[in-house]
Structure formats: structure tokens, C-alpha cells
């Protein structure tokens, strides 16, 4: 947005946290999901590849590929959000990942043989639980082809051991 200057340090830190989180999840690379930080807003992209096809007749993406994409984006968004919040020390060496409690996927249209995009939103993150929703679209952001809502266990932050490690 015009006129709003994000302090460079904050963006760098945000990027650093994103790298740390993504690095922790080998499956992201296997699936081929790419993440971008734009003005500290996280968007994800799943470039199309033939391996993602689950229905040979209409060349549609596999329901599992769509579900995996949505769940991955929800976890990364939440982990990034938790680590960006002020309660958690920045640049923690070891980021703990949230654990999925449940995940409900709403398949609205077939995913076509083209790139997909996704955006997740942390609805609420308490000390123990978090609710995250996520939607995926292809050509038109206003017309998502799948969306999901998930609940996650928020990892306990062991501040004492972190302080000891960094001393």
C-alpha cells in the first residue's frame, strides 16, 4: 500500500522466520509449494506439475494434492504468525511447529492443470489452540476452488531453555 513503509528489519526478520519454518518441512519442497512475503503478507503458490493429477479423464488435481497444499499453507502461516508475535523471542534457533488437530476441506470446483495460489488467515491463536482458515484459487482470487478450516495445537514455548541456549 502506498505511503506505508514497513521497517526493513521487521521484513528481514519476517523473511528469516519464513525460511526457518519452510526449512523445517521437507514435504513442502517435495510437493513444490513456493512462499512469498509481500508487505509481510504470506502467499503460497503450487506450480502445476503432471504428478499432481488425480483424475486422468479431466486432468484435475488430486483431492489429496489440494488438501496437502491447503494444510501446508495453514501450518506455515500459523508458525510464521506465532513466531512473529511479540511474545516469542525473535530468531529462535529451533522453531517448533504447530500440530494439526483437525482439518476440514471444502472442495468447490475441480482444480485444473494450472498453477494454484493460497492464502491463510489465523482466526484465533490462543496459548494452546489456534484456528486457521485457508483458501486456494487459480485464475480468480474471488472464486476459490477449495477452502479449509483447521485447528492446531500451539507449541509450548520453552523460554528458559531458549535463554540458556543463547547465553
Amino acid at each position: 500500500m502506498k505511503g506505508i513503509v514497513i521497517p526493513k528489519k521487521s521484513h528481514e526478520e519476517s523473511t528469516h522466520i519464513l525460511y526457518d519454518v519452510v526449512d523445517r518441512i521437507p514435504f513442502i519442497d517435495f510437493l513444490g509449494v513456493k512462499f512469498d512475503l509481500f508487505e509481510d503478507k504470506l502467499t503460497a503458490r503450487l506450480p502445476f506439475k503432471p504428478e499432481l493429477i488425480g483424475n486422468g479423464f479431466i486432468k484435475a488435481l488430486h483431492g489429496g494434492a489440494i488438501g496437502s497444499f491447503l494444510e501446508t499453507v495453514a501450518i506455515v502461516e500459523l508458525a510464521h504468525y506465532l513466531n512473529m508475535s511479540k511474545k516469542i523471542p525473535q530468531k529462535m534457533g529451533k522453531i517448533k511447529l504447530p500440530k494439526t488437530i483437525d482439518f476440514t476441506i471444502d472442495y468447490m470446483y475441480p482444480g485444473l492443470d494450472q498453477d494454484s495460489f493460497a492464502l491463510a488467515k489465523v482466526n484465533r491463536a490462543g496459548k494452546r489452540y489456534a484456528s486457521v482458515s485457508v483458501k486456494a484459487w487459480q485464475e480468480n482470487k474471488e472464486k476459490p476452488f477449495a477452502q479449509a478450516i483447521g485447528h492446531f495445537l500451539v507449541p509450548k514455548i520453552d523460554l528458559k531453555s531458549w535463554e540458556n541456549e543463547t547465553r
Binding site: 483431492g63 489429496g64 488438501g67
Partner: peptide, 12 residues
């Protein structure tokens, strides 16, 4: 293993 893998297996 990633939750998405379990999701894919169950969906399939």
C-alpha cells in the same frame, strides 16, 4: 510424516 500425506491417503 506430514499431515497432508495422511490426508491424501485417506482421501484416496
Amino acid at each position: 510424516i506430514h499431515g497432508g500425506v495422511v490426508t491424501t491417503l485417506l482421501d484416496a
